[in-house]
Write a protein that binds this DNA or RNA. Structure first.
Lengths: 81, 81
DNA sequence: CTACTTTTTACGCCATAGCGTAACAATCGA
DNA sequence: TCGATTGTTACGCTATGGCGTAAAAAGTAG
């Protein structure tokens, strides 16, 4: 699962995929973040106008964090082994 | 340079460090993004209310992209060699 | 210390995120 | 097929981002 993102669409996709991988619903994320389901939906659909705080809250709920890397940057361990 | 971020402050720090590493001013980023210097300043200082579009624009100007990874996740190649 | 560059902050303005609430649409299991 | 869960969209509302513009504060070189 490659979760590289340069656009809001890609971030939304990554969040949705991770959520599904966890077997969770948008409602689950909503409960863990105090964000409305509608907000989660909007974010997953690539809303570039979303607030950074919103993205970070969902990331935290999913147990994710950001790495800021050079474009086309280094491989990760899993990509090799 | 470890650019892991879970908070707006950490993202701002990472963006500022990368910008400095490029030898650029906030004004340079402003020119490349059509965002005001004040907006860049606010973002680098950890404004969680910033729009995702704003973050992504600055990231692009710096030649960076996001990786969404598990918290405490995999090491990167540079961390080993 | 002085002049210049860089960064931070302020004010009025417009656009919009996310809220509560609600309805509608799409997806899924029995 | 159908009822139930899940996801999307809408309306009015308040709060605030980013804009133009401007000035002040902080940092830097001579």
């Amino acid at each position: 699962m490659n979760l590289t993102a340069r656009t809001a669409e890609q971030i939304g996709e990554a969040l949705r995929r991770t959520r599904k991988a966890r077997g969770w619903t948008q409602s689950d994320i909503s409960a863990r973040t105090n964000l409305r389901v509608a907000t989660i939906s909007s974010l997953e659909n690539g809303d570039a106008g979303a607030k950074l705080a919103t993205v970070l809250a969902v990331m935290a709920a999913l147990g994710l964090e950001f790495r800021l890397v050079e474009r086309g940057g280094s491989l990760e361990i899993e990509d090799i082994f």
